[in-house]
Amino acid sequence: MGYVFQFGVVWDHRWDLLYGAWLTLRLAVAASVLGLLLACLVAYARQNAPRPVRAAAAAYVEFLRNTPLLVQLFVLYFSLPMLGLRLTADTAALIGLSLNFGAYGSEILRGGMLSIPQGQIEAARALGLSAWRIFRHVVLMPALNVAYPALASQFVLMMLGSSVVSAISATDLTAITNTLQSTTFRSFEFYFVATALYLAMALALRFALGLAYRVLFPPALRSGTA
Protein backbone atom coordinates (compact mmCIF):
# COMPACT_ATOMS: atom_id res chain seq x y z
CA MET A 1 0.00 0.00 0.00
CA GLY A 2 1.59 3.24 -1.12
CA TYR A 3 0.60 6.85 -0.87
CA VAL A 4 -2.88 7.63 -2.20
CA PHE A 5 -3.13 10.99 -3.92
CA GLN A 6 -6.17 13.02 -2.95
CA PHE A 7 -6.55 16.09 -5.09
CA GLY A 8 -10.11 16.76 -3.87
CA VAL A 9 -8.83 18.79 -0.95
CA VAL A 10 -6.74 20.90 -3.36
CA TRP A 11 -9.87 21.56 -5.40
CA ASP A 12 -11.67 22.68 -2.22
CA HIS A 13 -8.95 25.29 -1.73
CA ARG A 14 -8.65 26.34 -5.39
CA TRP A 15 -9.68 29.93 -4.70
CA ASP A 16 -7.11 30.24 -1.91
CA LEU A 17 -4.40 28.99 -4.27
CA LEU A 18 -5.48 31.31 -7.09
CA TYR A 19 -5.55 34.19 -4.62
CA GLY A 20 -1.98 33.25 -3.67
CA ALA A 21 -0.98 33.22 -7.34
CA TRP A 22 -2.53 36.69 -7.71
CA LEU A 23 -0.59 37.95 -4.68
CA THR A 24 2.66 36.58 -6.11
CA LEU A 25 2.01 38.19 -9.51
CA ARG A 26 1.04 41.50 -7.92
CA LEU A 27 4.15 41.50 -5.75
CA ALA A 28 6.39 40.62 -8.71
CA VAL A 29 4.89 43.28 -10.99
CA ALA A 30 5.05 46.01 -8.32
CA ALA A 31 8.64 45.08 -7.43
CA SER A 32 9.70 45.02 -11.07
CA VAL A 33 8.20 48.47 -11.78
CA LEU A 34 9.89 50.00 -8.72
CA GLY A 35 13.04 48.01 -9.40
CA LEU A 36 13.19 49.11 -13.03
CA LEU A 37 12.90 52.79 -12.05
CA LEU A 38 15.68 52.24 -9.54
CA ALA A 39 17.71 50.38 -12.17
CA CYS A 40 17.41 53.35 -14.60
CA LEU A 41 18.54 55.78 -11.90
CA VAL A 42 21.45 53.60 -10.83
CA ALA A 43 22.55 52.87 -14.40
CA TYR A 44 22.44 56.62 -15.15
CA ALA A 45 24.35 57.43 -11.96
CA ARG A 46 27.05 54.88 -12.70
CA GLN A 47 27.73 56.53 -16.08
CA ASN A 48 27.15 60.23 -15.47
CA ALA A 49 27.09 61.14 -11.78
CA PRO A 50 29.97 62.65 -9.78
CA ARG A 51 32.51 60.17 -8.48
CA PRO A 52 31.16 59.67 -4.89
CA VAL A 53 27.63 59.00 -6.18
CA ARG A 54 29.06 56.65 -8.77
CA ALA A 55 30.93 54.76 -6.06
CA ALA A 56 27.80 54.56 -3.89
CA ALA A 57 25.77 53.20 -6.83
CA ALA A 58 28.46 50.60 -7.56
CA ALA A 59 28.58 49.59 -3.89
CA TYR A 60 24.78 49.15 -3.82
CA VAL A 61 24.84 46.95 -6.92
CA GLU A 62 27.72 44.78 -5.72
CA PHE A 63 26.29 44.42 -2.20
CA LEU A 64 22.83 43.38 -3.43
CA ARG A 65 24.15 41.05 -6.12
CA ASN A 66 26.58 39.26 -3.83
CA THR A 67 24.35 38.52 -0.83
CA PRO A 68 21.41 36.08 -0.69
CA LEU A 69 17.92 37.53 -1.18
CA LEU A 70 16.67 35.62 1.86
CA VAL A 71 19.27 37.25 4.10
CA GLN A 72 18.46 40.68 2.64
CA LEU A 73 14.82 40.09 3.57
CA PHE A 74 15.80 39.02 7.11
CA VAL A 75 17.81 42.24 7.52
CA LEU A 76 14.91 44.38 6.29
CA TYR A 77 12.33 42.61 8.42
CA PHE A 78 14.13 41.48 11.58
CA SER A 79 17.03 43.91 11.94
CA LEU A 80 15.56 47.28 10.98
CA PRO A 81 13.06 47.24 13.93
CA MET A 82 16.10 47.37 16.23
CA LEU A 83 16.90 50.72 14.57
CA GLY A 84 13.30 51.83 15.09
CA LEU A 85 11.94 51.11 11.57
CA ARG A 86 9.13 48.58 11.77
CA LEU A 87 7.97 47.45 8.32
CA THR A 88 5.10 45.05 7.73
CA ALA A 89 6.14 41.76 6.16
CA ASP A 90 4.50 42.62 2.83
CA THR A 91 6.22 46.02 2.67
CA ALA A 92 9.58 44.50 3.59
CA ALA A 93 9.07 41.89 0.85
CA LEU A 94 8.24 44.56 -1.74
CA ILE A 95 11.22 46.72 -0.77
CA GLY A 96 13.57 43.73 -0.67
CA LEU A 97 12.52 42.43 -4.09
CA SER A 98 12.62 45.95 -5.61
CA LEU A 99 16.14 46.59 -4.29
CA ASN A 100 17.23 43.19 -5.57
CA PHE A 101 15.69 43.67 -9.01
CA GLY A 102 17.11 47.21 -9.15
CA ALA A 103 20.65 45.89 -8.66
CA TYR A 104 20.43 43.16 -11.30
CA GLY A 105 18.37 45.34 -13.65
CA SER A 106 20.86 48.22 -13.50
CA GLU A 107 23.69 45.94 -14.59
CA ILE A 108 21.62 44.60 -17.50
CA LEU A 109 20.65 48.15 -18.46
CA ARG A 110 24.24 49.37 -18.14
CA GLY A 111 25.26 46.65 -20.56
CA GLY A 112 22.62 47.99 -22.96
CA MET A 113 23.86 51.54 -22.51
CA LEU A 114 27.46 50.54 -23.18
CA SER A 115 26.31 49.07 -26.48
CA ILE A 116 25.25 52.55 -27.69
CA PRO A 117 28.04 53.81 -29.97
CA GLN A 118 29.74 56.94 -28.63
CA GLY A 119 29.32 58.52 -32.07
CA GLN A 120 25.52 58.38 -31.74
CA ILE A 121 25.66 60.39 -28.51
CA GLU A 122 28.10 62.88 -30.02
CA ALA A 123 25.81 63.27 -33.02
CA ALA A 124 22.89 64.06 -30.71
CA ARG A 125 25.02 66.59 -28.88
CA ALA A 126 26.00 68.18 -32.21
CA LEU A 127 22.30 68.49 -33.04
CA GLY A 128 21.89 70.53 -29.86
CA LEU A 129 19.67 68.12 -27.89
CA SER A 130 19.50 68.75 -24.13
CA ALA A 131 21.29 66.34 -21.78
CA TRP A 132 17.92 64.94 -20.58
CA ARG A 133 16.64 64.36 -24.13
CA ILE A 134 19.92 62.71 -25.09
CA PHE A 135 19.67 60.37 -22.09
CA ARG A 136 16.02 59.60 -22.74
CA HIS A 137 15.90 59.19 -26.52
CA VAL A 138 19.44 58.39 -27.56
CA VAL A 139 20.66 56.31 -24.61
CA LEU A 140 17.84 54.93 -22.47
CA MET A 141 15.28 53.82 -25.06
CA PRO A 142 17.77 52.06 -27.36
CA ALA A 143 19.44 50.54 -24.28
CA LEU A 144 16.07 49.25 -23.05
CA ASN A 145 15.46 47.85 -26.50
CA VAL A 146 18.77 45.93 -26.42
CA ALA A 147 18.39 44.87 -22.77
CA TYR A 148 14.69 43.94 -22.98
CA PRO A 149 15.07 40.15 -23.37
CA ALA A 150 17.51 39.95 -20.46
CA LEU A 151 15.32 42.21 -18.31
CA ALA A 152 12.25 40.11 -19.12
CA SER A 153 14.14 36.98 -18.12
CA GLN A 154 15.26 38.64 -14.87
CA PHE A 155 11.64 39.59 -14.19
CA VAL A 156 10.50 35.97 -14.48
CA LEU A 157 13.42 34.85 -12.29
CA MET A 158 12.40 37.41 -9.69
CA MET A 159 8.77 36.26 -9.78
CA LEU A 160 9.92 32.68 -9.11
CA GLY A 161 12.46 33.83 -6.52
CA SER A 162 9.77 35.77 -4.68
CA SER A 163 8.71 32.42 -3.16
CA VAL A 164 11.22 33.07 -0.34
CA VAL A 165 9.19 35.99 1.06
CA SER A 166 7.02 33.55 3.00
CA ALA A 167 10.02 33.16 5.34
CA ILE A 168 9.29 36.62 6.78
CA SER A 169 5.53 35.86 6.97
CA ALA A 170 4.62 37.84 3.83
CA THR A 171 1.63 36.33 2.05
CA ASP A 172 2.22 34.87 -1.43
CA LEU A 173 1.51 31.62 -3.27
CA THR A 174 4.21 29.73 -1.33
CA ALA A 175 3.00 31.04 2.03
CA ILE A 176 -0.60 30.04 1.28
CA THR A 177 0.53 26.64 -0.03
CA ASN A 178 2.60 26.06 3.13
CA THR A 179 -0.33 26.96 5.35
CA LEU A 180 -2.71 24.71 3.40
CA GLN A 181 -0.32 21.74 3.36
CA SER A 182 0.39 22.11 7.06
CA THR A 183 -3.29 22.16 7.97
CA THR A 184 -4.43 19.41 5.57
CA PHE A 185 -1.15 17.36 5.51
CA ARG A 186 -1.61 16.83 1.76
CA SER A 187 1.85 18.19 1.05
CA PHE A 188 2.50 16.32 -2.22
CA GLU A 189 -0.75 17.45 -3.76
CA PHE A 190 -0.41 21.09 -2.74
CA TYR A 191 3.25 21.35 -3.78
CA PHE A 192 2.49 19.73 -7.15
CA VAL A 193 -0.29 22.21 -7.81
CA ALA A 194 1.79 25.17 -6.59
CA THR A 195 4.63 24.08 -8.89
CA ALA A 196 2.19 23.91 -11.80
CA LEU A 197 0.85 27.37 -10.93
CA TYR A 198 4.36 28.85 -10.85
CA LEU A 199 5.14 27.17 -14.19
CA ALA A 200 1.92 28.52 -15.73
CA MET A 201 2.62 32.02 -14.39
CA ALA A 202 6.20 31.96 -15.71
CA LEU A 203 5.09 30.82 -19.17
CA ALA A 204 2.24 33.35 -19.27
CA LEU A 205 4.62 36.13 -18.17
CA ARG A 206 7.15 35.21 -20.86
CA PHE A 207 4.38 35.24 -23.47
CA ALA A 208 3.02 38.60 -22.26
CA LEU A 209 6.48 40.15 -22.11
CA GLY A 210 7.18 38.90 -25.64
CA LEU A 211 3.98 40.58 -26.87
CA ALA A 212 4.82 43.77 -25.01
CA TYR A 213 8.23 43.79 -26.68
CA ARG A 214 6.64 43.73 -30.12
CA VAL A 215 4.33 46.61 -29.20
CA LEU A 216 6.91 48.76 -27.40
CA PHE A 217 9.73 48.17 -29.86
CA PRO A 218 8.25 47.52 -33.33
CA PRO A 219 10.63 45.87 -35.82
CA ALA A 220 11.10 49.16 -37.72
CA LEU A 221 12.41 50.83 -34.57
CA ARG A 222 14.55 47.83 -33.71
CA SER A 223 16.45 47.82 -36.98
CA GLY A 224 16.92 51.58 -36.69
CA THR A 225 18.97 51.30 -33.52
CA ALA A 226 20.92 48.14 -34.23
Binding site: F74, Y77, F78, S79, P81, M82, R86, A89, S166, A167, I168, S169, A175, N178, T179
Partner: peptide, 18 residues
Protein backbone atom coordinates in the same frame (compact mmCIF):
# COMPACT_ATOMS: atom_id res chain seq x y z
CA UNK B 1 -2.08 36.47 13.07
CA UNK B 2 1.12 36.05 11.02
CA UNK B 3 2.72 32.72 10.13
CA UNK B 4 6.38 31.73 9.94
CA UNK B 5 7.91 28.55 8.52
CA UNK B 6 10.06 27.71 11.51
CA UNK B 7 10.20 28.52 15.20
CA UNK B 8 13.50 30.40 14.78
CA UNK B 9 11.77 33.04 12.62
CA UNK B 10 8.85 33.22 15.06
CA UNK B 11 11.24 33.79 17.97
CA UNK B 12 13.12 36.41 15.92
CA UNK B 13 9.85 38.22 15.15
CA UNK B 14 8.99 38.24 18.85
CA UNK B 15 12.41 39.46 20.00
CA UNK B 16 12.70 42.12 17.28
CA UNK B 17 9.31 43.57 18.21
CA UNK B 18 7.73 42.77 14.82
Amino acid sequence: IVFFDDIAATIQALLSGQ
